[in-house]
Amino acid sequence: MLDPVDRRILVASQDGLPLTATPFADLARALGLEPREVLARLRRLKEAGAIRRIAAVPNHYRLGFLANAMTVWDVEDGEVGRLGRLVGALPFVTHCYRRPRRLPDWPYNLFAMVHGRSRTETEARRREIAALLGSACRTSDVLYSTRILKKTGLRLAGEG
């Protein structure tokens, strides 16, 4: 999927693009490439889905979201697809996945990340999800994050 030039571009930008008005041209210059070629390659990777977007990654805590929780739910298998999509559509849910249960330790198959400014706010949002799931949910739990230990995203190796 990535040819060596794509890889050079992504490796050079994965920790951060130049913070200038023309970041792609400046990246191109640093790599000895034509700005037009870098733009074309980045666009192609975006169209292919390899790049989701070129964006700022915010630190939720620093933006005032102090109560960040992974909410987990044990939802009937026959209902989890339909209900998961409803939960995923809630505006305060940033990620929502179905994952395998690992019995007996881990009975939960639906994961929804919820962000709030306070635990009171996050708990209210959790109750909203609980109401939506209704009797299809047998049991649930909430895991508040207390610290970001690492947040780099996928790391590409210099040579693939």
């Binding site: 693009l17 980045l42 990654v57 994952r99 996928l154």
Partner: peptide, 28 residues
């Protein structure tokens, strides 16, 4: 933006990659 990155409000400004679309894999 540079100030937001400097102060840690923004972790980085960069391409967000999709490991699976790149042929890779992700797990929690």
């Amino acid at each position: 933006l540079a100030r937001l990155v400097e102060s840690g409000v923004v972790g980085r400004f960069a391409p967000m990659l999709d490991a699976e679309k790149l042929g890779g894999a992700v797990t929690l």
